[in-house]
């Protein structure tokens, strides 16, 4: 066994354990952390395949962004696991059917690839100076330009929709208007009154007593 194979089996084993942890952990926060761990391990397996771009993007997108938000929500919600497990036996057959379907799908993909003659022998070591990132970029921006742009537009649509759905106008909010604060000038706030330093005071009439003055 080469060192790469040893590493592959070691990380695959850890990956499988982490994936099992996701569905068996009682605490939802632990489950989310197991998922993060599983993502890290699959990234390492991709690194072993010399697909460094995919590996790093997996960590960047899923570990760095998606799972952080996920963890955020899971921590805020107080999920009652016991209650969620109530319908386990009822939904188990459906779950098993879906699991079998997924296994069959993945298996058939592997099978079709083998029929096409893409086997272990076809995977060659990439030459020195080969950039995974460049190869992916060239494919995405030439051959798959339209699907790529369509996906981007879909994502944009999703972002806009998410904002529109959650946006609500609240009245009576005391929000700060920074533009107004910055653009304020001295003359809007203070009024300078020119006054003489000295002023002649008319002597008060004798009839009024000093106490009645306002």
């Amino acid at each position: 066994m080469t060192i790469t194979e040893i590493l592959f089996y070691a990380f695959s084993a850890v990956l499988v354990v982490a994936a099992l942890g996701v569905i068996t952990a009682r605490n939802p926060v632990h489950a989310a952390l197991f998922l993060v761990f599983a993502f890290f391990n699959s990234a390492i397996i991709w690194l072993l395949l010399e697909a460094e771009f995919l590996a790093i993007v997996l960590v960047l997108v899923y570990v760095g962004a998606v799972m952080v938000l996920f963890l955020f929500v899971v921590m805020m919600l107080d999920v009652d696991v016991a209650k969620m497990r109530e319908g386990f036996t009822r939904y188990a057959p459906l779950g098993i059917i879906i699991a079998v379907l997924v296994v069959v799908e993945i298996g058939s993909v592997v099978w079709v690839k083998q029929l096409e003659g893409i086997s272990e022998a076809a995977v060659t070591v990439t030459p020195d100076g080969y950039s995974n990132t460049r190869a992916l970029g060239e494919l995405l921006y030439t051959k798959y330009l339209y699907p790529f742009e369509l996906a981007a537009v879909l994502l944009l649509l999703a972002i806009v929709a998410a904002i529109v759905l959650t946006m609500r106008q609240r009245t009576g909010l005391k929000a700060q208007d920074v533009a107004a604060q910055v653009s304020v000038r001295a003359r809007d706030r203070i009024r300078i009154v020119k006054m003489d330093a000295e002023k002649e005071v008319a002597t008060p009439p004798e009839s009024q007593s000093p106490g009645s003055q306002p």
Partner: peptide, 25 residues
């Protein structure tokens, strides 16, 4: 000296937030 060094840095710095979140929780 890896090709995607900048992405590697972005990926790792974004993972640093876990320490803070988990400490708080």
């Amino acid at each position: 000296d890896i090709n995607a060094g900048l992405l590697y840095i972005l990926a790792l710095t974004s993972a640093g937030v876990y320490g803070v979140i988990l400490a708080g929780w």
